[in-house]
Design a protein around this nucleic acid. Structure first.
Length: 451
RNA sequence: GCGAUCGUAGCUCAGUUGGUUAGAGCGCCGGUUUGUGGUACCGGAGGUCGGGGGUUCGAGACCCCUCGAUCGCCCCA
């Protein structure tokens, strides 16, 4: 709140400025995803954040709420309707078609970035949010599903997230799905008056969604609703069996979730979500937005964009939600390997720049305390978590040394200026090994004298 | 789109049934320490109480509108 008359503009509702520990967790999620995706040989790709509205409208179909009320759409200066991407999949499918990536099929793609949905913000839900995303396009084989899920599982495990389980279901092929849907409608229609108001609506618009209603009135009838298993064709059953046995072989734990569905018509076969276990810390942290990673097989999507029938499977996960579950200790800067350089007096500034450059070129992370008097600079070094401060003033320059201060013990001792990058590395390395071995360290002066 | 709760210093919050110059902790700046942090002590800056309107002799407190936040519903690609 400044003193000037003009008001500072506010951030757009549902957007967030991420800084500090949360930003480090966010980066940790992305870095982990990038590392794991290379292990599985998924290729990195980048896509536009906006597309013609029809890219999303056609793939999503006539699910009116989504298209009319949940998308960020606008007209550009030429009068064309554009939409900020609300998901990755449709844009990737468009790119697959317009770039002729059939030539690479099956193609394994990984991407991450911002997405936009015009929704009311709540816990774990923003209007601009971020996802990591993996897709395999042009593969009808169940082992593609297994590989994709194994990767998801490994990402979550390498993030150190505990108490999350893969919930798995099949929606069958097109015929299975239609027969099941018809049976569900019949089942729920017979008890329509006893369903919640929302589910009476859903009965017409999106009957599969009744299965994951949060309303108790509905849940009574969900338990004895028709099961997809009774409607699976032999082929669909064989596909699901191949996926589940593949997951078992890959060591991915899963549970069957018969009520897990996808609202959109293009989904076939595998549908899955990684969900925190009841009562886990993860469940508490996420509120009512419980799914941290979700996806499925969308064999019908690419056709809806005017392409050839193309099998595909993919998942996406919200980076913010994952970041909420990451142990922040894992993402903290490694202070044990950080030093600070403190010039004293104007004459030392240039020499100090030379020292920090030498340290950083040896991959030693280094804070250059450039502001204020020496006291302020020492405070900065301390706040930066530096293990050592390298003090450089007229005296040191005259003697061809730097003064090394141990920020934990307070000891100080000289180190030759020429020996700085290697000498500092040696100190840090000794600390690290001593820490692991539980050894005592000699006084700083001795350590520097003997080197 | 609907509902609930909330909005006071940079941050976290306290402010009795409306009553005089709006407080605390942390943080920030300065000093005790002209080249030495993390501890301690002392001092200081910083708020038109989200914004607008109304009720009242008097509003940070009450009413209306608006913006925003949080949590939930709808939706969840």
């Amino acid at each position: 709140m400044g003193k000037n008359n003009s008001k500072t503009p506010q951030a757009i509702r549902g957007t967030q400025d991420i800084f500090g520990a949360e930003a480090e967790s966010f980066a940790f999620v992305v870095e982990t995803f990038e590392r794991v995706r290379k292990l599985y040989r998924f290729r990195r790709a980048e896509f536009p954040v906006f597309e013609k509205t029809e890219v999303f409208a056609r793939s999503i179909g006539e699910t009116t709420d989504i298209v009319s009320k949940e998308m960020y759409s606008f007209e550009d200066r030429g009068g064309e309707s554009l939409t900020l991407r609300p998901e990755f999949t449709a844009g990737i499918a468009r790119a697959y078609l317009t770039n002729g990536w059939q030539q690479h099929a099956p193609v394994k793609l990984a991407t991450h970035g911002p997405l936009f949905r015009y929704e009311r913000p709540q816990k774990g839900r923003y209007r601009q949010f971020h996802q990591i995303d993996a897709e395999i396009i042009g593969a009808a084989e169940p082992q593609a599903d297994v590989e994709l899920l194994a990767m998801a599982d490994q990402v979550i495990r390498e993030l150190g997230i505990e108490g999350v389980t893969l919930h798995l279901n099949t929606l069958g092929d097109g015929d299975s799905r239609e027969a099941w849907r018809a049976a569900l409608v019949e089942h729920f229609r017979s008890v329509k008056d006893e369903l919640s108001e929302e589910s009476q609506e859903r009965l017409e618009k999106n009957p599969l969604r009744i299965l994951d209603s949060k309303d108790r009135r509905d849940q009574r009838f969900v338990a004895d609703a028709p099961k997809i298993d009774d409607f699976l064709t032999d082929e669909a059953r064989g596909f699901f069996d191949a996926v589940t046995s593949g997951l078992d072989a890959a060591g991915v734990k899963w549970v069957r979730a018969e009520s897990l569905v996808r609202g959109l018509d293009y989904y076939r076969h595998t549908a899955f979500e990684f969900i925190p276990d009841e009562g886990s810390a993860a469940a508490d942290a996420l509120g009512s937005q419980s799914t941290i990673l979700g996806g499925g097989r969308y064999d019908g999507l690419i056709e809806s964009l005017g392409g050839p029938a193309t099998p595909a499977v993919g998942w996406a996960a919200g980076i913010e939600r994952l970041a909420m579950l990451v142990d922040q200790e894992k993402t903290q800067w490694n202070d044990d390997w950080t030093v600070a350089v403190i010039p004293v007096g104007d004459a030392a500034e240039q020499e100090a720049q030379n020292v920090v450059a030498a340290l950083r070129s040896q991959s030693i992370s280094c804070e250059y305390a450039f502001k204020g008097n020496m006291k302020k600079r020492m405070q900065k070094a301390s706040a930066a978590g530096a293990r050592y401060a390298l003090i450089l003033g007229e005296d040191e320059i005259a003697d061809g040394i730097v003064t090394v201060r141990d920020m934990v013990s307070g000891e100080q001792a000289p180190m030759s200026r020429k020996g700085v990058p290697q000498g500092v590395f040696d100190l840090l390395f000794e600390n690290d090994t001593a820490k692991h071995l539980g050894d005592e360290l000699s006084p700083l002066a001795e350590r520097l004298a003997s080197s």
